[in-house]
Amino acid sequence: MAEVTFKIYRYKPGAIDPPRYDTYRVSIEPHTTVLDVLEHLRLDDPTLTYRHSCHHGSCGTCGMLVNGKEVLACVTRVADLKTDTVVIEPLRHQPLISDLVVDMTPFFEKYEPVGMPYIRESEYLPHSQPPEEVGAYTRFENCLECGLCLSACPVVGSDPDYLGPAALAAAARVVQEPRGQDVPTVLAMVDTEEGCWRCHAAMECSEVCPNDVDPGGLIMFLRRELLTGTSRSGGKR
């Protein structure tokens, strides 16, 4: 068991304003996650706000900056950070509501119009034969809608109108596997100044993505698609 110092960004409009960092000392076990620490601290200070739900990296709500890096707090072990001081801050480039909670409205304003279906054909168990009435095995899409990619992207930081990695990746998935969505419409949405041509391939989005969406790679896929029109039929990846 080790003692670790946590410096947590605090901000409440009108109450903790300007923002400040509160410092806490917490004993951690080898398996203690950053989210565990926040839950523990909230027992003493119910005004500490953060978003979370599933505790196992599938809901995508507990995105935050831990020592300057975008992570999901629930699957980030404090021991793995290998520092005595852990700085916890809200995601960048998104409006801040309170403490570690950012407003996801701009995220969904860009992401939802793309209309990516939430399920995709499964690439797992390629040799198994699905039962007749099932047709093909499906699974959920990778994107957790956590917003880490928007926080990591340097271009989103200077241009809030840029569609951004999450929406562009969703668009690329529609092109790869339309499942009834209109591919030309989606391609027209991203073939714009603020679409896939605004990206400068810093690939920070793919670096922080917790679920291997690889938004940067998918933006490059969109470019190739628009430049050469190779997989116009919408083939699967």
């Binding site: 271009v155 200077s158 241009d159 809030p160 100044e193 605004r198």
Partner: peptide
């Protein structure tokens, strides 16, 4: 121009 247009 590309850099300036990144400034929204």
């Amino acid at each position: 121009r590309g850099i300036l247009l990144d400034l929204n």
